[in-house]
């Protein structure tokens, strides 16, 4: 528990920046090229879309943990913020996808 060690200097900020930039570049390149072998259907959508969503979640995690300093806050505060978001948003997504599939089939 307690406040976690906060990085000093600015090198870590630029490291995150290059990482976010690299992930965005990969996303844009994949979005323009749309490689044939990634367009296979998987879990109700294409593999490419799942890759996009995965990369987005990685980007989001870095922004929240480092830019928004959440990784260095009290453990209690971290979970106060993570839990509602991690429970409610997947739940909302799940019910709308399930409902959307029903309506499309009807």
């Amino acid at each position: 528990m307690g406040e976690h060690a906060h990085p000093t200097g600015t090198a870590w900020i630029w490291k995150i920046f290059w990482l976010l930039l690299a992930i965005t570049a990969v996303e844009v390149a994949l979005g323009i090229v749309k490689p044939e072998f990634l367009l296979v259907q998987f879990a109700g959508t294409s593999l490419l879309n799942l890759i996009f969503i995965g990369l987005t979640l990685v980007k989001a995690a870095y922004i929240v943990m480092y830019f928004m300093h959440l990784k260095f806050e009290e453990t209690f505060l971290q979970w106060t913020i993570y839990l509602p978001v991690l429970i409610l948003i997947p739940y909302l997504t799940f019910i709308l996808i399930a409902e959307g599939a029903q309506i499309y089939a009807a």
Partner: peptide, 16 residues
């Protein structure tokens, strides 16, 4: 949560 509502609603309509 507000933005999730918008984006999931977008996905729902797009699916339909």
């Amino acid at each position: 949560l507000t933005f999730s509502g918008f984006l999931t609603a977008y996905g729902f309509m797009r699916f339909k």
